[in-house]
């Protein structure tokens, strides 16, 4: 039985449509990428609440800020590289410093963007957003969770960054699964090592869990869909009980999930950590599958990291 595949940006589109129908304050902005980001699904149904700002990301974020001051809940949408890079100062000084209720959606997160190459692969967006005071950062793992994260973002006050992916990836969570911002989901219990992952790579972590099980290693798998506020309790419990951690993300290892988890650990419960992610380099063109292999982002890499961290584990 093959697993259902969907791009998790579709979840964003579905989430927006549901919000459009249930919350009249929700408005959506895009910067000439509405088809690609799925914000056009909302635009088709609620044209009067959709604003295309043209290829002007900084203005889009400022306009979103103004809409939020007028009581609206704006979702400012474009590719993750552009929204977090080009408009970072607008997000920092206008939105976060004023603590405005602006939701920021970064599509095409990660190297799995593929053939468009390095310019379009957001690999620093989590770091750029998580460093900002008041910002909440979510990286859903599949299309179902992406929809939940979108809807959840509208229900909390303050700025949120949502990262979506371009490629169709396995849909392995279900509608009925619990989702709460800041509360990680433990997908597999395990006592030897813990894999903490975010985004579609969580599926690779589940595959790694099976491979490790075949070797007699019991690996806990945590879906850390919220990078900020980070579920510190679940991290510390994992450190306490498994004493070894592997993080996995489609992002630079500097500044992303691996860093966030490590920050919690070094302060409270230092245990060995191995980080799967982009190792301080830019991406390149290729198919998503080729790139995942080349940049060591597949289940096999997670297994190797788990073995490495187990070897470092203090007895």
């Amino acid at each position: 039985m093959s697993i259902k595949m969907l791009p998790n940006r579709d979840g964003y589109g579905h989430g927006l449509i549901e919000l459009g129908a249930t919350n009249s304050e929700v408005v959506v902005l895009d910067a000439d990428l509405a088809k690609s980001t799925r914000s056009d699904w909302f635009a088709d149904k609620f044209p009067e609440r959709f604003f295309d700002l043209g290829i002007a990301e900084q203005d889009m974020l400022g306009t979103a800020a103004g809409l939020s001051l007028g009581g609206k809940i704006p979702f400012a949408t474009t590719y993750g590289v552009f929204v977090t890079g080009r408009a970072w100062d607008q997000i920092r000084t206008t939105i976060c410093y004023s603590e405005l209720n602006v939701k920021i959606a970064g599509a095409h997160g990660g190297i799995s963007v593929g053939p468009d190459g390095a310019t379009h692969q957001a690999l620093e967006d989590i770091a750029l957003m998580r460093v900002l005071p008041h910002m909440q950062v979510m990286v859903p793992c599949d299309a179902v969770e992406a929809k939940k994260a979108t809807i959840a973002a509208a229900s909390v006050k303050g700025p949120c960054y949502l990262r979506f992916a371009r490629e169709a990836t396995p849909v392995f969570t279900e509608e009925r699964d619990f989702f709460e911002i800041g509360k990680a989901n433990v997908l597999k219990e395990g006592m030897d090592v813990t894999i903490i992952a975010c985004g579609p790579i969580v599926y690779e972590a589940l595959l790694a869990n099976e491979q490790l099980a075949a070797m007699g290693i019991s690996a806990r798998v945590i879906n850390m869909h919220t990078i900020k506020p980070l579920d510190e309790a679940v991290v510390l419990q994992a450190a306490e009980e498994t004493k070894a951690i592997v993080t996995a993300e489609e992002h630079q290892v500097a500044g992303g999930l691996g860093s966030a988890v490590s920050e919690v650990l070094v302060k409270n419960k230092p245990v060995p950590v191995e980080m799967i992610g982009i190792q301080d380099t830019f991406g390149e063109s290729g198919t998503p599958e080729e790139l995942a292999v080349k940049y060591h982002l597949v289940a096999n890499d997670i297994v190797l990291a788990a073995q490495k961290v187990l070897a470092r584990k203090s007895k």
Binding site: F51, Q58, G62, T63, G66, S68, L69, P74, Q90, T93
Partner: peptide, 17 residues
């Protein structure tokens, strides 16, 4: 405010609201 260049966008957003 304090980082120049941003205010007019915000004014526009308010006008749209």
């Amino acid at each position: 405010s304090g980082s120049l260049g941003q205010g007019l966008s915000i004014a526009n957003g308010l006008a749209l609201s």
